[in-house]
Nucleic acid binder design. Structure first.
Length: 732
DNA sequence: AGCACGCCGACT
DNA sequence: GTCGGCGTGCTC
């Protein structure tokens, strides 16, 4: 085999499939999962060996040889390679780009997998006189040299400790040849273990859920369906501790904004060891370190966001997807994978259980419960005996208010604060006002590159397009006629300002992606919210997820109506999820919570369903509707998107794609469209899409496969950027 | 995606 | 004469 071996190598390029190479000269054939350096076109690339076979579709003379092997041992095992292949097939995406998504940046760039330490050493001995002479010109350099003189060879960490700012003289020291830096393999760090803190006693439902999870160590998908505040995390924690004791690891995936320092701290205390963290706020070397701890098995818990689903695990025992309904588990560009769905696929492959947790499960998961393919674990009681909040609508037709705040809402805020409570005002719209209109000619400030209006940000006096990110200075006079302009409608900034004026004696804190852009401001704002120092909180979705504010008793929703008339068939599900999640922030301790929702459409059917039957009632109606209409989860969807600089280009391409799809003659695949996107122009590009739908996943994927192969060669494809989105979450 | 080749326009 | 614009083609 070894002489005839052909290596299938994944390379990070938007090209389908892997590339065939011959093994390196005078070396063993590298195993699947090892990185190799290969010539690729006119450049050299780092690739990953996916497979070792004994043949190629190309003539042997066309094959180049692997230049060198980067890893002595595979850095990914068979199960991880399987997941990469599965992802590439399922999402019809180039395997090299899947590998790139699965590997930390430093490994992609060829850094060693093993931990290394920089050792710093003097190149020559120094006598007192020459050191003195240097000290006059370069005192910092001299200090470092004299330190190294006394310690001898020294690790970077030790030097950091002695001279926190030595990095500033690192370069001159190296350039002058005074020091040399050597990378050596690090000793494996001892695994710090502390006493694990005990948690609260579980209630009957939590205990029952725990027993079910303990009873099985093979593959099974559980839906842990627990109302907000019911203590889902306690259940995971107990199972994780059991597994840890048995030497098994848990991979836990959370939405981006669910990964708060408070959550990590709690996990760490209860486990008695440090979880390996993988999220976007880390440096590349921190991420590599966490990845290595997961792969080597020294971290018993691996906690991360979407891309952590690919993290290798030495002894996998359980996968948890917390807040499984959250849309951030689906990547919305490039490789459009769903980490939740891949988590289930991975658990099945590994034959281990997977727990999907949510207070507002996706309709897809609820349909699996109905079909008996997931196991249902229910937590219906709030932990610690807290009462569910009281919900009430405010008809804004009968109670019109100034600047988005109706009189009943304002007096409720007043009353709750008087009683020592805290109020959260929720509005899913950043900025001061969504529209800037001219008072004389009604001209509206719009984005030059998108079919959208500009949002007024008064604090920094800018007009911002929330679709392309374009910014321009705010002008008080109309661009068309020169008259005075007026901000129209409300965003969080305006609500914050109005509340600060109405309640000057209380602190109002706004939490949205604008107010928390600076590093650390988020943590500070959250701790003020938790301590109760901020009496009134104003915020977007960011504030509604996963936080616990002990003193919060009132939640006010300023404008829920945008969600009532969504064109997307998932609109109702989304609205119910976000309202239920934000409502769940109210009254999680002794005090009963109250939730007030302003709407101009109190008679809308949605309100009846949600107020009377809660989230699960909306879900039942929603599922029935989808079954009648044949939407997911009762069918499968795939979307082909295209965009181009000329309006006709995407449509011409998509029409051709529709034609090819019809020629594929898959009888049970429906072809809907193409249509232009509702916001046709975005960031200067015209956009369109073609929807494919089928009850049979296999049929749909066969068509996608065929399209993937043929569309590349289409002349119309050269004038557009196009992509496939399997199981799209956003249809528009 | 990169990267080269190639074929036309406006510069020292 | 040549520098550089981006259309086209290729990567085992």
């Amino acid at each position: 085999v070894s002489r005839r071996a052909v290596l299938k190598v994944a390379i990070n390029a938007p090209l389908p499939g892997a590339f065939d190479y011959l093994p390196p000269p005078h070396a063993d054939v590298p195993l699947p999962g090892t990185r190799v350096r290969v010539p690729f076109g006119r450049r050299r690339e780092i690739g990953l060996v996916l497979e070792v076979t004994d043949g190629s579709d190309l003539p042997r003379s066309k094959l180049k040889r692997v230049a060198s092997v980067l890893d002595q041992q595979p850095i990914l095992g068979e199960d991880e390679l399987w997941l990469i292949g599965f992802t590439s097939d399922y999402y019809h995406h180039p395997v090299g780009e899947v590998v790139a998504a699965a590997l930390p940046a430093l490994l992609r760039q060829g850094r060693p997998f093993e931990a290394t330490v920089e050792f710093i050493d003097l190149t020559a001995a120094w006598d007192a006189d020459s050191l003195h002479a240097l000290a006059r010109r370069a005192p910092r350099q001299a200090e470092v040299i004299s330190h190294l003189q006394s310690t001898g060879s020294c690790t970077k960490d030790a030097l950091d400790l002695a001279f926190p700012n030595w990095r500033r003289v690192r370069k001159p020291l190296l350039d002058n040849g005074h020091i040399r830096i050597e990378e050596r393999l690090a000793e494996p760090a001892p695994n710090e273990r502390r006493e694990a803190a005990d948690g609260p006693t579980l209630n009957r439902e939590q205990q029952a859920a725990l027993e079910q999870l303990r009873a099985n160590d093979g593959f099974c998908t559980y839906l842990l369906d627990g109302v907000t505040g019911s203590g889902k995390t306690e259940v995971y924690l107990q199972v994780m501790r059991d597994l840890d004791a048995a030497g098994k690891q848990t991979l836990i995936l959370v939405p981006e904004i669910g990964l708060t320092p408070q959550f990590v701290e709690r996990l760490e205390q209860r486990l008695g060891s440090r979880p390996a963290l993988l999220h976007s706020g880390l440096t590349d070397s921190e991420r590599l370190h966490a990845w290595r701890r997961a792969a080597e098995g020294s971290a018993s818990v691996v906690l991360g966001t979407r891309s952590a689903v690919f993290t290798p695990l030495k002894n996998p025992g359980l996968i948890v997807v917390d807040e499984e309904h959250d849309m951030s588990f689906k990547q919305q560009e490039g490789l459009r994978y769903s980490a939740r769905d891949l988590a289930v696929a991975r658990a099945k492959r590994l034959q281990i259980p997977v727990v999907l947790g949510s207070a507002t499960p996706s309709l897809d998961s609820l349909q699996h419960i109905a079909a008996d393919s997931y196991k249902h674990l229910t937590l219906s009681q709030r932990a610690g005996g807290a009462m569910p909040p009281h919900l009430r609508l405010i008809d804004t037709n009968r109670h019109p208010g100034a600047e988005g705040l109706s009189p009943p809402l304002v007096s409720a805020i007043d009353a709750h604060i008087e009683r020592g409570g805290q109020a959260l005002i929720f509005l899913n719209r950043r900025g001061f006002a969504p529209t800037l209109i001219c008072g004389a000619c009604s001209h509206i400030a719009d984005c030059q590159r998108c079919d959208s209006r500009l949002t007024v940000h008064l604090r920094d006096r800018t007009l911002v397009c929330h679709h392309c990110g374009g910014i321009q200075p705010l002008n008080d006079t109309c661009a068309a006629c020169g008259a005075q302009t007026v901000p129209l409608g409300e965003g969080t900034e305006r609500i914050e300002e109005a509340l600060a004026r109405r309640f000057p004696q209380h602190r109002v804190t706004r939490i949205d992606s604008d107010s928390t852009r600076l590093k650390g401001t988020m943590d500070r704002a959250l701790s003020m919210a938790v301590s109760g120092e901020a009496r009134i909180l104003v915020g977007t979705q960011m504030l509604s997820k996963g936080h616990h504010f002990p003193q919060l008793t009132l939640v006010g929703v300023v404008n829920a109506d945008q969600g009532l008339f969504s064109t997307d068939f998932r609109g109702g599900e989304r609205l119910a999820q976000s309202l239920t999640q934000v409502a769940g922030r109210a009254g999680r301790e002794r005090q009963q919570g109250e939730v007030l929702i302003q709407t101009a459409f109190p008679q809308h059917a949605f309100w009846g369903e949600w107020l009377n039957g809660g989230y699960h009632q909306v879900a039942r109606f929603g599922l029935a509707e989808r079954e009648a209409a044949g939407w997911p989860p009762y069918s499968r969807l795939a979307l082909i998107r295209a965009s181009g600089h000329q309006r006709d280009d995407p449509m011409r391409f998509l029409n051709r794609a529709a034609e090819l799809a019809r020629e594929a003659r898959a009888a049970d695949v429906r072809i809907l469209g193409p249509v232009s996107a509702p916001m046709e122009r975005r960031a200067g590009r015209y956009r369109g899409q073609l929807l494919l739908q089928s009850v049979r996943r296999g049929a749909l994927h066969a068509v996608l496969q065929q399209l993937r192969n043929t569309l590349h060669a289409e002349p119309a494809a050269r004038r557009v950027r196009w992509s496939m989105d399997v199981d799209p979450l956003e249809l528009f």
